[in-house]
Every structure is written in structure tokens, then in C-alpha cells.
């Protein structure tokens, strides 16, 4: 039994024909202890998909799927109370901006204890001790003192560690990290990623890392999914993906990394914009207007996500052949 199984996930905002398709037909599978990276730019639907999983999408958003299962438990038709028992305990999420993601009116100690009280209640003292342990486990110096600190008194990096502490408080089986380092200093970014990796190994957690930063993803992911305009366009083991991307979009993402560009020259960037609502309804390849390999067939039909001749999963009728 897989840790996570998502089949044909759709997330739409609004109703009827003009609804915005944030996620279109996402399939995803994650095994215990595996690290999955989801990359894509803003508007690709990567965050929305995971929030739909957590049940965080509110009206006018609508979530539909064929299957949404976590450790075999059906999340799709789960009653709200049943879902709430899993969220925050076995399945938790860490968000992008740690300082605003923590409640400014309460100390971080009380916010961690709140998670414990909800899912693993114990005596007040025991929970306080556990909170302190958690802060220490995420590498926060002087954890006891920090319990009484307010979010605005901590740096971004410390807040993010605190949020991670909160997320792993009940030893989750899966941790979703949505752009955990984007709002942080570069120096701190590496520390947080190392921390996530360390925790994952220690607790044998599944980890989903969402990022638009390929460098970060390449460091720790086993497998990577590339998303564009709500669709998965490529899926492959990390090393293979970065060595030889098959989808033009993946190639473009790799080409845009500063390290891959000659010094002094302008950075490579893909011309055009991410498809808006109207374009997403069209029956053609969503990358067609930005792709330099576009052909007539690309405009006739939306390509499916399929295995190509080399056994790679790509959504393109003319995938790249390694290194092009």
C-alpha cells in the first residue's frame, strides 16, 4: 500500500464553464520514506494540489478526484472530523512565509502545544517538555527560552524551524513542504533543507517538497514531478530528470538556472506567459505558444502524459532526446 495515492485530481475555482482550472488531472503516488519534488512556476498548481490534499481549499474552490488516499484512508469522501484527525498528525504541511504563517498573538510554545493537545494530549507539563524537545530537534538554540517567544521576535529561519517543529510534533508519516525556503536568506536555505532531510531520514517520513528552485529539489528529491499550468508535464527520478530532461519546459527551467548561463550574458528565459483561464480550456498543448519546438500537431490536441520510447513519462508529442 502506498503512502499517498492521488488519481485524476482536479481543482477548479468558480463554477461552470468559466471556472479557473488550477489543477487538471493530477496523478501522484508516493511510497513510505520517499522524497518527491514538485517543481513549477507560480500558477502551475503545485501548491493548490497539496492544499487540496490537506482539505484547505475553500469555496469557491472545488476539489474532485477519482482517488485521494493517504495510508489507504480515503481523504476524498472523508467526513470533516475524520479528516481533521489525520491532518496535522500523520499528514502535515509547512508553508512558505514562516513569520506570517504563525499566529502573532500567541507564543510559539503555545502553538506547538496546541498541536499536541489536539492530536496527542498529555499533561500540560509533558506537552511543554515535548515542545522543548521538538524545538531542540529542529536545531533552535536555547529551546526552553524560545518557548515563550512570539513569532515577531524570531528571525525567518527560526520561525521556519519552529513551524517544522510544529509539523513533526506528532511524528507524521508525510510532510509536505511548500516552498519552505523561498522567503529565507540563502544562507539559511541550505540549513533548512538539511534539517528536512535529516528529519526525513530519522523518522522515515515521506516528504513532498514543492519548489520553483531546482537546485534545492535536486539536492534531496528521489523523484521529481514537473508541473505547468495545472498539469504534470514530466515525471522522473531526480538524477535522470536533471541529467536529461525530456519536456521542453523542464529543459527551459534548467536552462534558466544562473549557474547554467555564461557569466555576463542575460539569463535564459522562456518568452510568453503562463496560460490563463481561457487558454487552459483550449484543446491543444498548453506550452505551444512558448515552445520553440512547436509543430502543427501540438495545436490540434492536448497531449497526454505517457511513456515515451525511452520509458520516460512525458506530456509531449516530440520530447527532447537528452541534453538538447
Amino acid at each position: 500500500m502506498s503512502l499517498l495515492e492521488i488519481n485524476n485530481l482536479h481543482v477548479r475555482f468558480g463554477a461552470g464553464a468559466t471556472a479557473f482550472r488550477a489543477v487538471q488531472g493530477l496523478d501522484l503516488r508516493l511510497e513510505v520514506g520517499e522524497t518527491l519534488g514538485i517543481v513549477g512556476e507560480s500558477g502551475s498548481g503545485k501548491s493548490v494540489a497539496m492544499m487540496a490534499l490537506m482539505g484547505l481549499i475553500e469555496t469557491p474552490g472545488q476539489v474532485t478526484a477519482e482517488r485521494l488516499a493517504f495510508v489507504g484512508n480515503d481523504l476524498l469522501c472523508a467526513r470533516p472530523a475524520a479528516r481533521r484527525r489525520m491532518i496535522g498528525k500523520d499528514l502535515s504541511m509547512v508553508f512558505q512565509d514562516p513569520v506570517t504563517s504563525l499566529n502573532p498573538a500567541y507564543t510559539i510554545g503555545s502553538q506547538i502545544v496546541e498541536t499536541l493537545k489536539t492530536h496527542a494530549p498529555a499533561s500540560r507539563r509533558a506537552m511543554k517538555v515535548r515542545a522543548e524537545e521538538l524545538l531542540a530537534a529542529v536545531g533552535i538554540p536555547e529551546p526552553k527560552a524560545r518557548l515563550a517567544a512570539y513569532p515577531h521576535q524570531l528571525s525567518g529561519g527560526l520561525c521556519q524551524r519552529a513551524m517544522i517543529a510544529m509539523a513533526i510534533a506528532c511524528e507524521p508519516k508525510l510532510l509536505i513542504a511548500d516552498e519552505p525556503t523561498t522567503a529565507l536568506d540563502v544562507t539559511v536555505q541550505a540549513q533548512i533543507i538539511d534539517l528536512l532531510l535529516e528529519l526525513q531520514v530519522r523518522h522515515h517520513m515521506g516528504l513532498i517538497l514543492i519548489s520553483h528552485n531546482l537546485a534545492v529539489v535536486s539536492q534531496i528529491a528521489d523523484r521529481v514531478i514537473v508541473m505547468y499550468a495545472g498539469e504534470v508535464v514530466e515525471e522522473a527520478p531526480a538524477r535522470t530528470l536533471f541529467a536529461s530532461p525530456k519536456h521542453p519546459y523542464t529543459a527551459a527551467l534548467l536552462a534558466a538556472i544562473p549557474e547554467n548561463n555564461p557569466i555576463g550574458a542575460p539569463l535564459y528565459s522562456l518568452p510568453g506567459l503562463v496560460p490563463g483561464n481561457l487558454e487552459r480550456q483550449a484543446n491543444r498543448c498548453l506550452m505551444a505558444n512558448r515552445c520553440d519546438r512547436v509543430r502543427e500537431e501540438c495545436l490540434l490536441e492536448r497531449p497526454c502524459l505517457a511513456m515515451d520510447a525511452d520509458g520516460r513519462i512525458v506530456r509531449c508529442i516530440a520530447p527532447l532526446n537528452g541534453g538538447q
Binding site: M54, G55, L56, P80, R83, R84, R85, M86, I87, G88, K89, S92, M93, F95, D97, T100, S101, L102, N103, P104, A105, Y106, E114, T115, T118, H119, M163, M166
Partner: peptide, 26 residues
């Protein structure tokens, strides 16, 4: 609409608790 309310929901808190402890307080 604040981020920390999203976090509170992501912790699996009961909606009433989210409203009264997290939202109302701020």
C-alpha cells in the same frame, strides 16, 4: 485571509477553535 489561519486549519484544529482562538483573537 491570513496565512496563520491556514496553518491553524492545516493543524487539524476544529473550525470553532480556529474561529475563536485564532481568528477572533487577532
Amino acid at each position: 485571509r491570513e496565512d496563520y489561519v491556514r496553518t491553524a486549519r492545516a493543524k487539524g484544529l476544529a473550525p470553532s477553535r480556529v474561529m475563536l482562538v485564532h481568528v477572533l483573537r487577532n
